[in-house]
Simulated scan of single mutants.
Amino acid sequence: MDWEPISETELWDKIISAEGRMSPQVLRLWESIKIPPEKWVEQTYGTVGGGFWVVAVIGGRVIWFNDIEDGFNCSSYIVAGKLSEYFCNQDELEIAVQNVLAIIETGRDSIARRSVPIPGEWQSR
C-alpha cells in the first residue's frame, strides 16, 4: 500500500470530530489559537507530502498534523511556514491542545515527544 498525504477534507473531518470531544476549557483555547489549515515546510520528512498541515499557532509553537504517523504534534517554529522540529506522536487533536493548555498553566510540556529512530547500535544495560 502506497502512502498518500491526507487531504484537507479528511483533515477537517479529524478536526470537527476532535472539537466534539474537547472539554469546554480546551475548546475555548482551541477557538483562540486555531487557524485555517495550511501546509508548512518540514525538511526531514515533510517534503514527500508537500509539507504538513498546521492547524493552530500560539506564540512560537504550532499544532500540526503528521499524516505519515497519523497524529497531531506541537512543535516550535522560528520562521512562519517552516516547522523547526519533527515529532511523530500519534495524538488526537484534543490531546495536543490540552498539552498547550498545560504548558500555559504550568510552564511544562506534559507530553513525551516521539522522534524518528536514531541510527546506531543499541546498547543493553
Rank of each mutant, 00 (worst) to 15 (best):
I111E: 12
P117M: 06
V57A: 09
Y77C: 06
V57W: 02
E121G: 07
L101N: 06
W64F: 13
G46E: 06
R114Q: 07
V55S: 07
L101I: 13
I78H: 04
I68A: 04
N89T: 03
R113G: 00
V41Q: 12
N66P: 07
N66M: 04
W12V: 08
P5T: 03
A56P: 04
T44V: 12
V116E: 12
I104P: 05
S7Q: 00
N99W: 11
S115P: 01
A96H: 07
M22I: 11
I6G: 02
T47K: 12
S17T: 13
P5I: 04
T9W: 07
S76Y: 08
V48M: 10
K14W: 13
S32V: 12
T106D: 10
G71N: 03
Q25M: 11
W30A: 10
V79S: 06
K82F: 09
A112Q: 14
S124I: 14
S75L: 09
W3D: 09
G60T: 04
I16T: 15
W40Y: 04
T44E: 14
I104R: 15
V26Y: 00
E105Q: 15
A56S: 12
Q25Y: 08
A80H: 10
V79T: 15
E105G: 07
V100E: 13
V54W: 04
A102H: 12
D2F: 01
E105F: 09
V57S: 08
G59W: 09
Q43D: 07
I111H: 00
Y86N: 06
R114P: 03
W64T: 04
Q43R: 13
E121N: 01
E105H: 14
W30C: 13
R108I: 14
C88G: 10
V62Q: 04
V26Q: 03
A18G: 08
G50L: 11
V100H: 01
W3A: 09
G60S: 13
K34L: 03
E42V: 00
Y77V: 08
F52A: 02
G120L: 04
S17E: 15
Q25A: 15
F72V: 05
I78G: 10
S76M: 08
D13I: 13
E8F: 02
E31V: 05
R114G: 00
E121K: 00
A96R: 09
N66Y: 04
S115C: 09
R113F: 09
E31C: 13
I78C: 02
A102W: 02
V55Y: 06
Q123W: 05
E38W: 07
I118T: 11
T106H: 13
I58L: 11
K39L: 14
E4M: 05
Y45D: 01
N99K: 09
P24L: 11
E38V: 15
D91M: 11
R21W: 11
I15F: 04
S110P: 05
A56G: 05
G49A: 00
I95V: 15
V100T: 14
Y77F: 15
I104N: 08
I6W: 04
V54E: 08
I6H: 02
P36F: 03
G46L: 05
P5K: 00
D13R: 14
K39T: 00
G71A: 05
E85G: 09
E19A: 06
F52S: 01
I33V: 15
D109C: 08
E38P: 05
I63E: 03
L29W: 13
E19T: 03
T44R: 15
I104D: 00
L11C: 12
Y45K: 09
V97N: 07
D70Q: 12
V26R: 07
N66E: 02
R125Y: 02
I118M: 10
A112P: 02
